[in-house]
Design a protein around this nucleic acid. Structure first.
Lengths: 337, 337
DNA sequence: CTGAAAGCGCTTACAG
DNA sequence: CTGAAAGCGCTTACAG
């Protein structure tokens, strides 16, 4: 059987309260006793039960993280950064892939609460903000990453998506493109909305309008992007967009595949801009021009924000905005004549 | 405050034991009482505490998963499959990226045990098998995925790595290659050892020997692969390998980059074969010939194996071996003359 | 400096 | 069919 605090106490000839104090550095325990107890713990391979101490109001040292899909490299890289920082502080992270579907979000949130996680990082699109309000009412610390919920008072770490969209627009405009289209993520995803807003602004600053029908809403997977891109490219050459701004790298890969299938050369016949700068962007054919987010930093900061909530629950909510950066690679070129 | 079972019991005018029975469908509770209790739970937004019931010997409905790195697409895809199956059954999964380092493995394993996870899926390379033996001695159900520990009696789901290596060899041999090299993962990683063994067998069946110095051991990251590939390609053209077998897609991308840097055209001047068939393999330039593993199936089966251990602890250990498949894309071609 | 006791929110025999 | 009571492994005042 696994050793408990009772075994240690008995072996040391003290009460369990003293063992508990020795472990937690609480109260006063003579140095001699403490060392003796520690030695016995070692010998018995005693592992304090997080479960039991959590029941007494201590933390579970576990946080949840809701993201659309861990197999999307953008979220996998973010998750790694969150995990590393969490691990440094003794926390574990439960990954929850929601596919941006509200019923999955709700199910996971219920589970996480039943498991008494200490906090939750939200990187998934959520339509119904009441879900988050309820969480906050239950006293669950929250931090948003790569997504926003402006209506809520909640710690947030985002890239400046609007600026990111504008950078993409300016890049394409400077290359002479005037017929542009967008591959968007679900409207639920705030970051996607912001990117499109910035993109539209960037275009209108150059006197170019972005028609509503040039915005194709996709799920976040490659196949969706490809399907919707094929629709956009089905127009006759003189009406067809010469540049597509994609709200993430996965969609951009879909666009790349669509262009290939249509026999349209990239970048000569079509320029494609992605978003995120995941590992994918650097290995595609051609390598993807994309708007980079500082993923490692975002993950780290998001955990730090959450940890700050855990420490002093009353603290100010912060909103951290990181700078995006356009990485020009080879999927963009001057617009065809 | 969050409602507890006491609140529900008081509201319903019954004992907490009856509420507990109603929730768990244990004992006999009249249908009328049960419905009344359920209705009150709903109204009070009562969420049973997993922590408390775990302390009474029930499960935590949480499992751990040790992998080298969640930001490696291979493991991200596996993790997604594990997560989906786990979620179906009401379990959550804690992701632990170990970077294949024993101290991180030990640290995570200790944490997971303190948190009383119901079981652990191991996909990380482990040098010191005693670590796993100790886990088993503590009664923690285990399942290995994509890694083996033949010395242990443990459920295992793997691809037939040896066959995978042989497929790679046969493919290269059939294209006329005779000077071959390997980009290997750490020796700790059993799957990498097996792949190399199969590759070597495949070569020797064609009368080709694989020199020890043609095997470059890397970590599992792109940069490592690139660095070691550069070394392999530093030889004069007539001694340099015409084909490189890489033990995963990430290393293959490193090889691709090294070739590009050296100005060696792929596949005309150098053929490259990867392993895994992650999303990366389909988007590289050129697309990667690689040995595919059925990642979704592996993840699903691994969780099922673990779940089987949880149910009936005494059951037989199983070893599931899945078939790899060579996907010929455009990174391989006939050997240069 | 140390220990007895209460209690966290449940489950599980056991008795009725 | 229902409830009183013990107990899971800890922590936390409180008393000494």
């Amino acid at each position: 059987m696994k050793a408990t605090i009772y075994d240690v106490a008995k072996e040391a000839g003290v009460s369990i309260a003293t063992v508990s104090n020795a472990i937690n550095g609480k109260g006063k325990v003579s140095r001699k006793r403490r060392e003796q107890i520690l030695e016995i713990m070692e010998r018995l391979q005693y592992q304090p039960s997080v479960i039991a101490s959590a029941l007494m109001g201590k933390q579970t040292y576990t946080v949840g993280m809701l993201i659309p899909d861990i197999s999307n490299p953008f979220f996998a890289e973010i998750a790694r950064a969150v995990e590393d920082r969490a691990h440094q502080e003794g926390y574990s992270v439960i990954i929850c892939s929601t596919d941006n579907r509200d019923e999955r979000v709700e199910r996971y949130l219920t589970l996480l609460q039943q498991k008494s996680v200490d906090g939750i990082i939200i990187g998934t699109g959520i339509e119904d903000l009441d879900i988050l309000r309820r969480l906050q009412a239950n006293g669950v610390p929250l931090a948003m990453i790569a997504r926003e919920a402006p209506a809520l008072s909640v710690d947030t770490v985002v890239t400046d998506d609007e600026t990111g969209g504008r950078l993409a627009a300016e890049h394409l405009v400077s290359l002479g493109h005037r017929r542009l289209a967008v591959l968007a993520e679900s409207r639920k995803v705030s970051s996607s909305r912001e990117r499109i807003r910035g993109f539209r602004e960037g275009l209108s600053a150059a006197g170019i309008a972005l028609e509503e029908e040039s915005i194709a809403v996709c799920e976040y997977k490659v196949e969706d992007g490809k399907r919707r891109a094929l629709e956009l490219l089905a127009l006759p050459p003189e009406e067809r967009p010469t540049g597509i701004f994609c709200c993430n790298d996965l969609l951009a890969i879909g666009a790349l595949q669509a262009a290939k299938e249509k026999g349209i050369p990239v970048p000569e016949g079509l320029s494609i801009v992605g978003f995120d700068d995941t590992i994918l962007a650097s290995v595609t054919d051609p390598p993807l021009t994309t708007v980079a987010q500082p993923m490692e930093e975002m993950g780290r900061l998001a955990f730090d924000r959450l940890a700050a909530c855990l420490q002093r629950r009353d603290s100010e909510r912060q909103r951290v905005v990181l700078k995006p950066e356009l990485k020009a690679r080879r999927s963009t070129a001057p617009a065809p004549q």
